[in-house]
């Protein structure tokens, strides 16, 4: 009898598939998400591998040629300083990507954690965190950003930190309200009765149920961070020439409206769009993959 049941158990063990495998399978079935991931990976490789991939070195100038249209040597032409535009774009992508993705991920992690803590514990923890959120929401962000970047200098790391410090509040409020409603679910009570620590309840039982709002928030935050960075560059607090980002290439090219070089406006814009869309699709895919009820 005993031996029989042991045999039965070992036979069924083989078919036991972990949660992670199921998640990966569901994600891979999501075509848009997979293509988003591929495109984003290609962009990341191209930008961060720019020193090896780009046709010209960073800030290589050809002052005699000046601004030219697309040619076999300069695929996208050159800017007014004679810099190869394609190479510029790739180098600029390093900063824009790290700012966009960095802020998207960092602000979401901080916001979700603080928002969940506020919602889960309530009381003075909630008061403290939510008043902090209010504080961040009432002060004009550009002023704080300018102050911070002035103080700490503007590198992509400080820009990421500064933008995340301001960006976590939105998702924190959303996470808090969701956690408040999850707090009433019986499966949370069941976990508590089983002896799960608050951290385990939040990480294991609540955050996975926030996947939808988190996915949306990340993709919005990535786009917003790339754009905000360009605003900052424009105001002189962001990335400064000769370094460039997609944002400040965009604002520089805005001056070319009405000239034959107007196509230069297109490329940085297009790359921002592609990055944001890819992140969006990946977010969609993650959300669906995390939700076992998705029919696909």
């Amino acid at each position: 009898m005993r031996a029989q049941s042991v045999a039965a158990t070992t036979k069924t063990t083989r078919s036991f598939v972990g949660q992670w495998t199921l998640f990966r399978r569901r994600f891979l079935r999501h075509r848009l998400a997979v293509s988003g991931l591929v495109v984003l990976a290609m962009l990341v490789i191209a930008c961060f591998g720019a020193p090896w991939i780009a046709p010209f070195q960073e800030n290589h100038q050809d002052l005699i040629t000046g601004s030219t249209g697309p040619s076999p040597v300069h695929w996208l032409g050159t800017d007014e300083l004679g810099r190869d535009f394609l190479s510029q774009l790739l180098y600029a992508g390093r900063i824009s990507m790290s700012v966009g993705l960095g802020v998207g991920v960092l602000s979401t992690i901080v916001g979700v954690l603080l928002g969940s803590l506020a919602g889960y514990f309530g009381g003075w923890v909630d008061e403290l965190i939510m008043r902090l959120v209010d504080l961040f929401l009432v002060v004009p962000p550009i002023a704080i950003l300018a102050l911070l970047l002035q103080g700490f200098g503007s590198s992509s790391a400080t820009i990421v930190l500064a933008l995340s410090a301001l960006g976590w509040t939105v998702i924190a409020r959303v996470a808090r309200s969701q956690v408040l409603s999850l707090r009433e679910k019986e499966f949370v009570d069941a976990a508590i009765v089983l002896g799960a620590s608050p951290l385990r309840v939040i990480v294991r039982h609540m955050i996975p149920n926030l996947a939808g709002v988190i996915a949306v928030n990340v993709s919005l935050a990535v786009a917003a961070a790339i754009i905000t960075e360009s605003t900052l560059s424009f105001l002189g607090f962001g990335v400064q020439p000769p370094d460039s980002s997609w944002g400040n290439m965009l604002s520089q090219a805005a001056g070319l409206l009405g000239t034959p070089q107007v196509h230069l406006l297109l490329y940085p814009g297009l790359l921002i769009l592609i990055t944001v869309l890819s992140v969006n699709f990946i977010g969609d895919g993650l959300r669906d993959a995390l939700d076992p009820q998705t029919k696909r």
Partner: peptide, 22 residues
């Protein structure tokens, strides 16, 4: 917590929809 357990009323709310039974 190990000695006292509870079975809940609503079978639809008492299991986390994101976790497999295992």
């Amino acid at each position: 917590r190990r000695r006292v357990q509870m079975v809940f009323q609503d079978p639809y709310a008492s299991l986390n929809p994101r976790l497999t039974i295992g």
